[in-house]
């Protein structure tokens, strides 16, 4: 088991380095000259040269990449300015340290992701479970029709409709402003409930359909029939012999979805004006702010890769058949 974990973590490092290299090449080599962008409108050739010099743009690309990596782990110097580790450079637009931009916005994205995940897991799994048990009834058909509809509604449409109805027309919720929980718990909840709902709807519908399909499959399993033939109570049969086998594959999908969201919910954060990683990504792309784009991409890749490993490790504890072959 320990060897397995070490092997997986080694793989993570390799993947992250590869992602680093690719994003670096794409954003720093294929996009407009950063020096020209930083220099702005009142620019002279001499200034461009000195900016190039400070950013190290005159050096070979691999040297530049090496310095970028060094910056992340050991810090680096831009001319007279020292950027301490982990250094992801400075925004071309605001000159702010990219690392501090991330640490300031990450809590918002995490709050959005966690809240949405709780909602969609509860709604999706419970809805799918009831549908499976009441297969073919009006509840099942209604729930699955709603789920199909829910999956089909784009996030931004739902977000705008909710804001228009709840904030503008009915005025039951304030406009989302991402306050700290400690300052005003009620306002915090009221601010986040719409983004949570908007993000959760699509996932909940998907999870409801998945849960339903998995549970129905499990109800056909021979071991489910054995459990009934053993005379166990209905609730024990369902809980132990249907739910656990049916939900185990869902943890895999959940891990990946959740990890993906930690890297920022681009559309939802932008529509609600929440200052998270997703909105930062959207803004930086619009303004071609390369260090920020680069950092956001790396962060998303980091979460997805780590999420993948966590899911695999959790899976080995959930499914004994995997556990034994992996050790």
């Amino acid at each position: 088991m320990t060897r397995y974990v070490i092997g997986r973590l080694g793989g993570v490092v390799v993947i992250l380095l590869a992602v680093c290299l690719f994003t670096y090449l794409i954003f720093f080599k294929l996009s407009p000259d950063p020096a020209v962008m930083i220099c702005g409108k009142t620019c002279t050739p001499e200034r461009i040269d000195s900016i190039r010099d400070v950013l190290g743009l005159n050096q070979p690309i691999l040297t530049q990449f090496w310095e970028f990596l060094q910056g992340i782990f050991a810090g680096r110097d831009y001319g007279s300015v020292h950027c301490s580790a982990p250094c992801l450079g400075y925004s071309f637009q605001t000159n702010e340290s990219v690392w501090s931009m991330i640490t300031a916005r990450l809590p918002v994205s995490i709050t959005v992701a966690v809240g949405a995940a709780v909602l969609w897991l509860l709604a999706g799994v419970i809805g799918g479970l009831i549908s499976a048990i009441k297969q073919g009834t009006w509840w099942d058909r209604t729930a699955m029709a709603l789920a199909l509809g829910g999956v089909s509604v784009p996030n931004y449409v739902l977000a705008l409709v909710l804001q228009f109805v709840l904030v503008v027309k009915l005025q039951v919720l304030p406009f989302p402003s991402a306050p700290a929980f400690a300052d005003n718990p009620l306002l915090w909840f009221e601010s986040y409930i719409m983004p949570w709902t908007v993000l959760a709807v699509g996932y909940a519908c998907l999870y409801a359909r998945l849960t339903r399909a998995n549970v129905i499959d499990t109800l056909q399993e021979n071991y489910f029939r054995t459990a009934r033939a053993k005379g166990l109570s209905r609730s024990l049969v369902l809980r132990r012999h249907a739910l656990r086998p049916a939900l185990t594959p869902i943890t895999t999908i959940f891990g990946m979805d959740f990890a993906g969201l930690l890297g920022g919910a681009l559309i939802t954060e932008t529509v609600f004006g929440l200052n998270g990683i997703g909105k930062m990504a959207a803004d930086s792309i619009a303004k071609n702010d390369q260090p920020v784009i680069m950092a956001v991409t790396l962060l998303a890749a980091f979460f997805v890769v780590i999420g993948n490993v966590v899911v695999d490790l959790v899976y080995t504890t959930l499914d004994p058949r995997v556990r034994v072959t992996s050790s």
Binding site: R225, R240, R244, P245, P320, R321
Partner: peptide, 9 residues
Amino acid sequence: LSSLNPYYT
């Protein structure tokens, strides 16, 4: 094999 639940001892 399929009549015993693979998730439990």
